[in-house]
Each structure stands twice: as structure tokens, then as C-alpha cells.
Design a protein around this nucleic acid. Structure first.
Length: 264
DNA sequence: ACTCAGGTATCCT
DNA sequence: AGGATACCTGAG
């Protein structure tokens, strides 16, 4: 599948920190393991990309997964002229999209993410997948189902370098497996109710809840504040970014600023 | 050897 | 409400 797409940059997405199983294998070649599948994407010309999948699979899964129907230009155009930092941030990271990833995978991945570097998160997630994901291709494993994850032994869980997060991961997986925490039901909640439901999970605080909302439930108004965003707020916005100015899609702006600030 | 990493739970005032 | 502290582990 060859597609012409504006505001889409593989490396920016890989480095954006929203997904942990997509990587660059080459300057313009990315591989992603998601949705129980393996997808290769090649950047083959200006705004032109080759997706290694059928048209049906592209339309059914990846077009939505990479949020390709959304007009990111209009987000960028809406940035206030006087907000030079955000202007610069957006133009430096205009290839980022807010992916529509699996809610359960996001919940577990971001529970793991606390006090970890991105390489360490990737490594832990990878170990988990090898341990109890399904082998989709030779040596490539899907993200685990709630059932298999919740049934992992202590020794196996510990072998994924989860540290004190191991208990959080098991509890969360168990809640989902048992149905106490139902991802389909959560998806129907308002932003406020979804946030409350997420922070009630042990190991999920404000920051992780917002990440799960933004990257797992595509609530693009969710605005995770981590150390990097706090730095941005302190350096440019007197300690707090005015999320009200971008009501409804502040999370997109968060990604621009996070990526921009971390890259420099 | 030492700090810090996309924080959170718990305890304290 | 808001501040201080412990917590597993790996990367730089």
C-alpha cells in the first residue's frame, strides 16, 4: 500500500515515547508490533509511505491506528502567534500523531514506565511479550492477553525487571481478566469518569492515567505532566501550561512540546 | 560509584 | 491540600 500522508514522520513517532514496540531498522524503515500484527512502513518519497499490508488491513486497522484521518495541520494552525515556544515545538515535531493503541497494552506499559528510562521500558515490555505473548512470527511476540499476564509466576514477572511495579502489573492484569476493569466499558466513559477509573488502579497515578487516556483511549484533551513537561512549564509558562487555550486537543500540544524539549 | 529515569503510595504536617 | 520519602533496576 502506497500512501501520501502529510504530517507523518516515522522517526518522530518512534521517538515520541507513546509507543514502545515500534522501532527504526533503517533511516527510513520502521517496524511496529501492534494489534497482534507486525507492520513494516517505508518512507519512500516526500510525504510518501509504503505500508507492507493489504489494502483491507490498511483501511481496517492502520489508517485508524496511526490516526491518518485527522487533520493535524488545523491543530498546528490554531497555535497562537505569540506562543513562540509552542510554535517552534510544533514545527519541529509536526510529524507526530497520537496513535490509537490498545488500551490494555497502554495501561500495562505505562504502569511499567514509572521511574524508568524509555530504553528500560522497551526492554521490560519486550521481555513480557516473549514470556507470555503469542508468537506471531518467528521470534516476534504479541503483547500479552490479560489472562496470561495475570497468571505469570512471581519468578517470571521478576525476570522482566519490573521491580516494585511487578505487583501493580499483576493486579491490573487480574482486574482486567476478571472483568472488574473492562476496557470496552471504560471507553464509553466521559474523560472525567475515565480518569477516576484509571487512577483507582494501584500503580496508576495522575501522569500514567493521562498517558493511558491519551494513547490508549485517544482522549486527545488528556495532558500528561511528567518531568519534561514540568520543565517546559517552568521555563516558558510560569509553572503551568495554559491547557484551556487548547481545549479539546491539549494532548496533541503536549506531544509537540514533550518531543521538542526532550530532543534538546 | 553515583545519579537519574516520562511516578506513585504512604505517611506526615 | 501539599510536602517528604521509599521504592526496583538499568542506562549514562
Amino acid at each position: 500500500m502506497i500512501k501520501k500522508i502529510r504530517n507523518f514522520d516515522l522517526k518522530s513517532i518512534v521517538d515520541s515515547g507513546q509507543c514502545f514496540r515500534m522501532k527504526m531498522t533503517d533511516e527510513d524503515h520502521a517496524v511496529n508490533i501492534a494489534m497482534g500484527k507486525v507492520l513494516e512502513i517505508r518512507h519512500i518519497g516526500s510525504d510518501t509511505f509504503e505500508f507492507d499490508c493489504s489494502e483491507e488491513e490498511f483501511n481496517d486497522i492502520w489508517s485508524s491506528y496511526y490516526d491518518l484521518e485527522t487533520d493535524y495541520d488545523s491543530f498546528i494552525r490554531s497555535i497562537k502567534e505569540e506562543d513562540t515556544f509552542l510554535k517552534n515545538a510544533a514545527s519541529a515535531s509536526s510529524g507526530i500523531r497520537i496513535l490509537r493503541q490498545d488500551p490494555f497494552e497502554m495501561l500495562i506499559s505505562f504502569i511499567i514506565s514509572q521511574r524508568k528510562s524509555i530504553p528500560a521500558i522497551r526492554s521490560s515490555v519486550e521481555k513480557l511479550c516473549r514470556l507470555c505473548g503469542n508468537e506471531i512470527r518467528d521470534g516476534i511476540y504479541s503483547f500479552p492477553e490479560p489472562k496470561s499476564l495475570s497468571q505469570l509466576s512471581d519468578v517470571d514477572l521478576a525476570s522482566c525487571s519490573l521491580g516494585y511495579r511487578a505487583g501493580y502489573v499483576r493486579e491490573a492484569a487480574l482486574s482486567v481478566y476478571r472483568g472488574d476493569l473492562n476496557m470496552e466499558k471504560l471507553a464509553t466513559l466521559s474523560d472525567e469518569d475515565l480518569f477516576e477509573a484509571l487512577v483507582s488502579v494501584r500503580g496508576v497515578g495522575k501522569k500514567v492515567a493521562n498517558c493511558v487516556m491519551l494513547f490508549g483511549f485517544h482522549r486527545i484533551n488528556a495532558f500528561p505532566v511528567d518531568v519534561w513537561m514540568q520543565r517546559v512549564a517552568d521555563e516558558h509558562y510560569g509553572g503551568r501550561f495554559p491547557v484551556e487555550s487548547y481545549e479539546g486537543y491539549a494532548g496533541v500540544m503536549q506531544q509537540y512540546m514533550f518531543f521538542y524539549r526532550r530532543g534538546r
